[in-house]
Design a protein around this nucleic acid. Structure first.
Lengths: 215, 215
DNA sequence: TCTAACATACCAACCAGTCGGTATGTCGTA
DNA sequence: TACGACATACCGACTGGTTGGTATGTTAGA
């Protein structure tokens, strides 16, 4: 029989020090603060207060403010991208073009009210930090590249399946789709209009229809 | 014979106090500082140093930092929009659709290297300030509305001229075009790629072709 | 002489980052 | 098993620097 600690049957281990958990709390609070105020204006005091930790904990887990921002891109924002845009494209090998159209229409349906106020976290960070910090720019670009690659892959599979015309440049179209999606977030955010975002998602779905191969 | 001041034939009136000129210098420096660093990070000390004036002059012409930002939107950025996007659309009543396509292709040709680094000033300000300051948001929205109205007007004229299909929703398409253009600026800025911007402008020109009425 | 158009000196607030210190865990060794 | 030695995880007061904004002084020009 194995030895056990006093808490191995409790649902929540209530230890005062939980480095992984602490790091996650800091990352979550940092994401929200940066999402609302931007990276430069995000206050570390505000982040630690929201996370319920102190400066000491923050600087134990992250060497400086920039590194905290990088971790938000890599660990939090990249996850959002996968869940919201690339996950729905997996499978559907028979008709990847329709799957892509459905992804835009699903995003139109499921868009949250706060997204009409705050926009896309990735786009926000890209616009603010790309010219100011090369490390930020490169990490954000990696996420954009993954996004474009996911769309381009779906278009290539659609060409293989015969639903997209052979003369379509998958990379070029994928880049255009990502740009149009981010631009739509941006305009809708300024106009505070979910309806504007939905309309643009529908426009993209219809645009994709013009790429479909003749039967 | 009219009376005249002592300087009406001199090229440059050399007076030390020139309120209009001072205001313009401040606005120009403010635009550049905000374009490079963002509004919140823009330093008033930096702006007055660049403009060659002092805090006293700045606060004589503008009540606070926010009002300086508003003036940059209304006086500087709106002018850029008119010159770069809406001016080329005037006239061309015989074929406004081609004029619109040409506007995108011209923008692709004439895009400046610094725009691949710093993006579109209007979009930058919109993404940063829309959620933080309602007055900013409203003034930026006014510029976007003017932009969309210019595109929508061109599309309506094209419908009248018979070059665009009757079932096209001019407002919806105009909004989509502006969103896609701003998104293209944003992606190209992150990727530091003029080529990406040019490719997307070409995509928009080709998209417009799908709206053309059958001959 | 009177006022608009500046200049200069200054301040309180806030910021990221540091540092001395403490509590909690882990591990080698006897 | 017990204990000392050490490392990790965290605390919170403090600092130097920067910021937007202000109060007061000065001067050009009508």
């Amino acid at each position: 029989m194995k030895r056990h600690t006093e808490n191995d049957d409790a649902a929540v281990p209530r230890r005062t020090r939980e480095p992984g958990q602490t790091r996650q709390k800091i990352l979550g609070s940092a994401f929200h603060e940066i999402y609302r105020r931007g990276f430069q204006a995000a206050s570390l005091d505000g982040i630690v207060a929201d996370a319920g930790v102190t400066k000491g904990a923050l600087y134990h887990h992250f060497p400086d403010k920039a590194s905290l921002g990088y971790a938000v891109v890599d660990d939090v924002i990249r996850g959002h991208l996968l869940a919201r845009w690339l996950g729905p494209l997996e499978g559907h090998d028979a008709d990847p073009l329709t799957a892509l159209q459905n992804a835009f229409r699903a995003r139109a349906k499921e868009v949250q009210p706060h997204e009409a106020e705050l926009g896309c976290p990735l786009n926000n960070l890209a616009q603010e930090m790309s010219p100011l910090d090369e490390e930020f720019r490169a990490r954000i670009e990696a996420v954009f590249d993954q996004w474009r690659a996911g769309f381009a892959d779906a278009l290539e599979r659609a060409k293989t399946a015969g639903t997209v015309r052979e003369d379509v440049d998958s990379q070029q179209v994928a880049t255009f789709l990502v740009a149009a999606a981010e631009g739509s977030f941006g305009l809708a955010k300024n106009a505070r209009s979910l309806e504007m975002f939905r309309s643009n998602m529908e426009m993209l779905a219809r645009y994709l229809e013009t790429l479909r191969a003749r039967a």
